[in-house]
Amino acid sequence: MTVRPTLSAAVMAHPRRTAAVARLREQVPGLTVAMDPRPDGPPTSVRSAAVAWASADPGATHHLVLEDDALPCADLLDGCAALIRGFPSAAVSLFVNDSARTAALTRMAVWSGRDAAQVIDIYVPTQGLILPAGAASGLAAFLRAHDDLTEAGDIAVLRYLHGAGVPVVVAVPNLVDHDDLTSIMGNTDHGRRGSVCYPGHAPHGDAGRLFDTPEIIPYLSESTTCSFLTSTPASAAPLRSRTADMLHLLGTDHDALRAQAPAAPAGLPAAAVHELWLTAYATGMLLTGSGRADPGEVRRHADTPAGRAAAASMASGGLGRGVPAPLLAAAAGPLADVVLHGLDLGSDAGSLRGWPGTAELTPART
């Protein structure tokens, strides 16, 4: 007999966020409030997370926990229901910030029409997270036993999930964004930490198509504003090299490639914008060159609200520390166009050239 998936939900909260919690309770019917039992203790999300994960309804097959600065889409629960039908045994994060390595995979999933991507960072985004009921109770016990952890809560959660053998994926597009509230954890210097792709509503229909993680992905590093090809957990060997150098070693004419790139929007550093464009170009190459999509599919999925949101977030996530926020915001539209231009040209190039794996790139690097 098939058990119909059912979902309970909680918000992990701090007394300083009562207004935000009240808003969430209006948006998400039946939301349980899990207050930090020691709000005056050392700043940590672990204490309230332990309470939240222990609050699953006894009859629920899955449990959702939101952080109190989450911004859920209007049809959040419908989107969650589709995700737990499609990925019943997985931990499903509803958010990933736009500068994460997982965000690079998420954009590829958007542009190839997939419903989820693997979490490949050292932490799981916990802005909104769904777990199977058994994993939820196990995580609650783990966090209660380790509420003095010095590591970040999102790292501890991933450590537990990996140890329990629970697959960890992120919803595509994201169903939750991150509100720009003052950080209780002292993370204000991290910047806005917005979603990689938040169109504001859940996709229609069923979910269940997981993006196949490549061995190597293009990634625009926020800390350096440089584009790299970097290995993922799917790779047997580590690799991290500048995208421009690797494409040149593989036969791409660097000068010809630069000539195809659009000019930087007024007032923005040309070198940084070129690295952004190059990341998008290599992403298009990967999608079509690896057979994950054809150029027509990439264009079709890019020409959607979710596709354009993913393009805009590549700029905000990768250039956020190298370009002043007012300049970045003023040029958001033109920068999204830069990304879509690179993605389009790269998808055509990939369909002709293919996309290498780690074994092919490692000899080229040496």
Rank of each mutant, 00 (worst) to 15 (best):
R240N: 06
E297S: 12
G291D: 00
G267K: 07
P269T: 00
A315Q: 14
S316A: 15
A311F: 10
R292H: 14
E297R: 14
M314V: 10
P233G: 05
A270V: 08
G317I: 03
T304R: 07
S235V: 11
A234N: 06
A272H: 13
L268K: 05
P262F: 01
L247F: 01
M285Q: 10
A256P: 14
A293D: 01
A280Q: 03
G284Y: 05
A237P: 10
P305A: 05
G251P: 02
P262Q: 02
G289W: 01
R240W: 05
A264R: 05
S313N: 14
A266W: 07
T243F: 00
T232G: 06
L250N: 02
L239A: 10
A280F: 00
R242E: 13
P233Y: 05
G318P: 08
L287F: 07
A310F: 09
Y281H: 15
A271V: 15
A266K: 13
V273D: 08
A236Y: 09
T252R: 11
L287R: 03
G296T: 06
Y281K: 02
L257K: 00
V273M: 11
D303R: 12
T230V: 15
A312D: 12
Q260L: 15
A259K: 13
W277H: 07
L250H: 08
S231E: 05
P305V: 12
A261E: 00
T243H: 07
A282Y: 00
A259V: 09
A271T: 15
G291W: 00
S241V: 15
A234S: 15
L249M: 14
L276Y: 04
L268V: 02
A256I: 12
E275C: 05
G317P: 15
L276P: 07
L287C: 07
G291N: 04
A306C: 08
Q260V: 10
G291C: 00
V298R: 02
L247M: 05
L250D: 01
L249T: 01
Q260G: 13
A271L: 11
H254G: 13
D255M: 09
H301G: 05
R308F: 13
S235F: 11
S241A: 14
T243Q: 05
L286Q: 14
A271F: 07
P233H: 03
A259D: 12
A312V: 13
V298A: 03
V298Q: 00
T304L: 02
T230D: 09
L287A: 00
M246K: 01
L250S: 02
T232H: 00
R292E: 12
D255E: 13
A264G: 06
P265M: 06
R242M: 12
V273L: 11
D294Y: 09
L250T: 01
D294Q: 11
G307L: 04
M246A: 13
T252V: 15
V298H: 03
G318M: 09
A261I: 04
A315I: 10
L247C: 01
A293L: 00
T230Y: 12
D253M: 12
Y281C: 01
P295D: 00
P295Q: 05
A311V: 12
W277L: 12
L229T: 04
A271I: 10
T304Y: 04
H248R: 14
L229W: 04
A293M: 04
P269N: 03
S316G: 11
A311N: 14
T279A: 07
T243R: 01
R299N: 09
G251E: 09
P305R: 04
L286S: 07
G291P: 01
R242F: 07
S313R: 08
T243Y: 02
G291L: 04
A263M: 13
S290L: 07
T288E: 03
